[in-house]
Computed example of a mutant assay.
Amino acid sequence: MLVISAKSGQLGNRLFLSANFIAFASENNFTVINPAFEEYADFFSSTAKDFLCCYPSTPFSIAGNQLIRKYYYNINRYLAESGRFNTINIKRDQPFSWSNSSITKELKTGSINFFQGWLFRDGWFVDDISNLKKHGEKIRAYFQPLKKYQLNVAKLISNIRSQTDVIIGVHIRHGDYQQHQDGRFFYLVEDYLKVMESAQALFPNKKVTFLICSNQKHNDDSFKDFSYVYGNNHIIEDMYSLAECDYIIGPPSSYSMWASFYGERPLYMIRDVNKTLEIGDFVHFYQWQGVFYPNEDWSKGVWEWTH
Rank of each mutant, 00 (worst) to 15 (best):
A6G: 06
Q10V: 06
L11P: 01
L15Q: 04
S18W: 02
N20F: 00
F21P: 01
N28P: 14
I33A: 03
I33P: 00
I33M: 13
F37C: 11
Y40V: 05
A41W: 01
F44M: 10
T47P: 03
A48T: 08
D50M: 02
C53R: 02
S57E: 06
T58I: 06
A63E: 14
G64C: 09
K70P: 00
Y71C: 05
Y71D: 02
N74G: 01
E81K: 14
F85P: 05
I90V: 10
S99G: 14
S102G: 12
S102H: 13
T104I: 15
T104G: 11
E106M: 13
G110Y: 13
I112F: 12
I112H: 01
F114M: 03
Q116V: 13
W118A: 06
F120A: 09
G123T: 09
V126L: 15
D128C: 07
S130Q: 08
K133T: 12
H135V: 09
K138R: 10
A141I: 05
A141S: 12
Y142D: 04
F143A: 10
K147Q: 14
V153S: 03
V153M: 08
K155R: 08
S158H: 09
I160C: 04
T164V: 01
D165F: 00
D176V: 07
Y177V: 06
H180R: 08
G183E: 11
R184Y: 04
E190N: 10
K194Y: 03
M196R: 02
M196Q: 02
Q200L: 03
P204L: 05
P204W: 08
N205G: 04
K206S: 11
K206C: 04
L211K: 07
L211W: 03
S214F: 07
F226V: 01
F226S: 01
Y228G: 02
I236L: 09
E237G: 03
E244W: 00
D246W: 00
D246Q: 05
Y247G: 01
P251A: 10
Y255K: 12
S256H: 08
A259L: 13
F261V: 11
G263D: 11
R265K: 14
N274P: 00
K275H: 08
F282T: 04
H284W: 12
F285Y: 14
Q287E: 15
W288T: 05
P294M: 10
W298H: 14
V302W: 00
W305R: 09
W305I: 09
